[in-house]
C-alpha cells in the first residue's frame, strides 16, 4: 500500500472545475440598492461553464506527462488546479512534493523591483530559504544572460528578458514537480535551444513533470505519456505518438469530436 502511494506523485480523481461567465467582479452597491427600490434592475444572470469535467489520471515518479488540446480545452486550467491556484469544484487532486509552476513566466514579478530583488521574491514565494537563494543567484543570472540589467527594475525589461529570467529562476529552484505551460513562445531560437537542453536535464532530475504545449515535436520528444483534452474532458491518454496522431485527426474542425 505504502509503495503504491509513494509511486504516484500526482493523482487526480474525477476533477471538475467551474467558472462563472459574465459577472466576474463582486456586486456593486449600486446594484444591491437598485434592487431595494425597484424590481426592474436584476443582477446579470450568472452562467457557469465547466472548464474541466471528470478528469482522472495518475502520474508515477520520474515520468513526464504532456497535455495537448485545442484552445480552450482546459489545459492551462488543469495546470493551475495542480498548482493549487484554482480550487476544484469537485473531485480530488493529490500532489506530493514541491510544485513549481512555469505558468506565465515572470508573472510573479513585481515590476517595481529589480531583477535581483525579484529573484529573492520568487525564492520566498517557493519557500526557499534566503541563504540557499544567495548561492543560486549567480547561476540564475548567468543562465538568463542578463547580467547588465539585473539591477534594473523589471518594468523596463523586454518580454524576452522577462522570460529568460523567469525560466532561469523556475528551473533553478530544484522543483519536485514541474508544471510547464507553453513557455518557449518568447525568447529567441538560441535561448530556446538552451531551455530545451535544460528541460531535458530537469525531466531526469524532477520527480515528475506536466507540460502543456502546442509544439508536437517538443511534446513527443520530452514526454513519456500524453493526455488529450477536448472541451474539458480527457479523450485520450497514452503513448505520445498515438496521442498526437489522435489529436490531429479528431480534435480539429473536421474531426469527429
Amino acid at each position: 500500500m505504502e509503495q503504491r502511494l509513494k509511486s504516484h506523485v500526482i493523482e487526480v480523481q474525477h476533477l471538475a472545475v467551474e467558472f462563472q461567465l459574465g459577472r466576474r467582479h463582486g456586486t456593486l452597491l449600486k446594484q444591491k440598492l437598485g434592487n431595494l427600490f425597484s424590481q426592474k434592475v436584476k443582477p446579470p444572470k450568472v452562467e457557469h461553464i465547466r472548464a474541466l469535467s471528470n478528469v482522472s489520471f495518475k502520474l508515477s515518479e520520474g515520468r513526464a506527462l504532456g497535455v495537448i488540446g485545442a484552445n480552450g480545452a482546459g489545459k492551462s486550467t488543469l495546470l493551475k488546479t495542480l498548482a493549487g491556484i484554482i480550487p476544484p469544484k469537485s473531485g480530488n487532486v493529490f500532489v506530493r512534493g514541491k510544485v513549481v509552476p512555469l505558468i506565465n513566466l515572470g508573472a510573479g514579478f513585481n515590476p517595481e523591483l529589480t531583477g535581483r530583488e525579484n529573484i529573492f521574491l520568487a525564492g520566498a514565494i517557493h519557500r526557499i530559504p534566503k541563504k540557499v537563494m544567495e548561492t543560486k543567484v549567480r547561476e540564475i543570472v548567468r543562465f538568463s544572460e542578463i547580467e547588465r540589467f539585473i539591477d534594473t527594475p523589471v518594468k523596463y525589461y523586454s518580454s524576452g528578458m522577462m522570460v529568460r529570467l523567469g525560466f532561469a529562476i523556475a528551473t533553478d529552484i530544484d522543483p519536485d514537480i514541474l508544471l510547464v505551460d507553453e513557455i518557449f513562445a518568447a525568447g529567441d531560437a538560441f535561448f530556446r535551444r538552451k531551455c530545451e537542453t535544460r528541460m531535458r536535464k530537469l525531466v531526469g532530475k524532477a520527480r515528475a513533470m506536466v507540460m502543456v504545449s502546442h509544439s508536437m515535436p517538443l511534446i513527443q520528444d520530452l514526454c513519456h505519456e500524453v493526455l488529450v483534452l477536448h472541451r474539458g474532458k480527457v479523450v485520450y491518454h497514452g503513448k505520445p505518438r498515438n496521442a498526437v496522431q489522435y489529436y490531429l485527426e479528431n480534435c480539429g474542425d473536421s474531426g469527429k469530436l
Partner: peptide
C-alpha cells in the same frame, strides 16, 4: 511559513 514572502512584500511596500 510564508513569513519571508510577507517580509519581502513589506520592505517593498515601504521602499516603493
Amino acid at each position: 511559513q510564508y513569513r519571508e514572502v510577507i517580509w519581502n512584500f513589506v520592505t517593498q511596500d515601504l521602499r516603493v
